[in-house]
Design a protein around this nucleic acid. Structure first.
Length: 426
RNA sequence: GUGGGCGUAGUUCAACGGUUAGAGCACUGGACUGUGGCUCCAGGUGUUGGGGGUUCGAAUCCCCUCGCCCACCCCA
């Protein structure tokens, strides 16, 4: 006989189950709570989008578009892509539903899986989850500071420590081209000494040379021009006001003129929140401004700004700060014998209707093994129901915390548990 | 796509090329026929990831392949 085929999850995707899933739930619920204080409302969007949406927003020559998208034709021959990021779909929906007619700024958050066909490593997956926010229609640098503050408050309430807020301005369509030219000029004489990757970057995206990790390239870029010295007066003013607001909020930040964002659509403010406790993929959140994107997609000129949190990286850090355990059963019902099993089954349903978390045995195993199981799942109480109890009408109860026990009328088990469990029933 | 590391029981890991591949934990049962945790005892059909090769003999050496991990590229 051939053994049945065993399936396993695809490369780069993962199952999330207890106890880990409790961390995920905590992050999700706390995010909702904090975001709602700032007026962000949830938006739920498709996971598949037309391929062109990402090609045009992220940039045709970006790695994401060139080699990382899950793209396939549907049955009518349309090119479909599993979303590799969240901003472009939100922008699409914002324009498609004319949300710009509503009072500005419009603020949304989303949560869900993204897909990129990459080689997995620590903190990187092919299906990964992001919680993101996007705000439309506010040019003020105070919005930038407000989003940073909201993010910091969320991370603090999650108990995260040792985070570094790195910030930069990548300028706009007016000033960035001049900087690119200046960078190319700076590196042109050293081109032959740069690593092969950087020689490619020199052509494709010279800003990327700035965050190369090769020692030689790090040496060669000493003295390279800073983008902050090339910002136009509007961008410079905006950046200074963001930084000043951050100082007023007592939010510590690190200026990182070498930080460039991967996606083409960013303008002005760009930032990353990193942790040294992660692997090489150390950004737990990142975002920035995209003041031209809505217009480029056919909407009215509307500034935008947002960020996304990487769920796997976040929960990775939270796992180190202490396990969050799931709910424990209030009571385990241990029936002995056929009649008792049915009685216990009915009792379990009565107790659940009263708001108790109940586990119940119904396979007729010994009292010993049932108590062992109750102990293992850390039930607070055990109710023992055997022939003796059924004939006397009084069930035995046992408190697994202190070992105390006694008996109680079967009809009054609910009342007994309610008085013995503060806060229950709900 | 590139480079490196690792695949042995449910799990964490042992086993100089040499008997029948072992141990902790977990699980199940018992000591205690209806009382958990602590203790003690008992319980393993593992294609040593898969395939091929070298050898009298391979978990161990070689080749191929699959998978996982880490790093690069890039990115949350």
């Amino acid at each position: 006989m051939t053994p049945p085929q065993q399936f396993s999850a695809l490369k780069g995707v993962q199952d999330i189950f207890p106890p880990d899933v409790h961390l995920w739930q905590k992050v999700e619920s706390l995010s909702r709570e904090v975001f709602s204080l700032y007026g962000f409302e949830e938006i739920r969007l498709p996971i598949i989008e037309p391929t062109g949406l990402f090609v045009r927003s992220i940039g045709e020559t970006s790695d994401i578009v060139e080699k990382e998208m899950y793209t396939f034709p549907d049955k009518a021959g349309r090119s479909i892509t599993l979303r590799p990021e969240g901003t472009a779909p939100v922008v699409r929906a914002y324009i498609e539903h004319h949300l710009y007619n509503l009072p500005s700024p419009q603020k949304f958050f989303y949560s869900g899986p993204m897909f990129r066909y990459e080689r997995p490593q620590k903190g990187r997956f092919r299906q990964f989850y992001q919680i993101g926010v996007e705000a439309f229609g506010a040019v003020s640098p105070l919005l930038d500071a407000e989003l940073l503050s909201m993010l910091k408050i969320l991370l603090e309430r999650l108990g995260m420590k040792d985070l570094n807020f790195e910030i930069n301005s990548v300028g706009c369509g007016n000033c960035r081209p001049a900087y690119r030219t200046a960078l190319r000029d700076f590196f042109s004489a050293k081109l032959g000494s740069l690593c092969p990757d950087c020689q490619r970057r020199y052509e494709a995206n010279p800003l990327r040379i700035l965050d190369c990790k090769v020692d030689r390239c790090i040496e060669l870029r000493a003295g390279a021009p800073f983008i902050t010295d090339f910002l136009c007066s509007e961008c410079k003013d905006h950046f200074e006001k963001v930084l000043s607001a951050l100082r007023r909020l007592n939010i510590p930040y690190t200026l990182n003129p070498n930080m460039v964002r991967g996606l083409d659509y960013y303008t002005r403010t760009a930032f990353e929140v990193t942790s040294e406790h992660l692997g090489s993929q150390k950004a737990v959140a990142a975002g920035g401004r995209y003041d031209r994107l809505v217009e480029e997609f056919g909407g009215p000129p509307t500034p935008g700004m947002g960020f996304a949190l990487g769920m796997e990286r976040l929960t990775e850090l939270l796992r180190e700060t202490g396990e969050i355990v799931g709910p424990f059963p209030d009571v385990y019902i241990a029936p002995l014998g056929e009649r008792a099993i049915m009685e216990g089954f009915l009792m379990a349903e009565r107790l659940r209707a009263r708001g108790f978390l109940v586990e119940s045995g119904y396979d007729g195993s010994s009292l010993r093994s049932q108590l062992r199981k109750a102990n293992r799942i850390t039930a607070r109480f055990v109710i023992i129901l055997g022939e003796d109890e059924l004939s006397s009408g009084r069930a035995k109860w046992k408190n697994l915390g202190d070992g105390s026990q006694g008996d109680v009328e079967i009809r009054k088990v609910e009342e007994f548990l309610a008085s013995a469990s503060p806060g229950k029933p709900r």
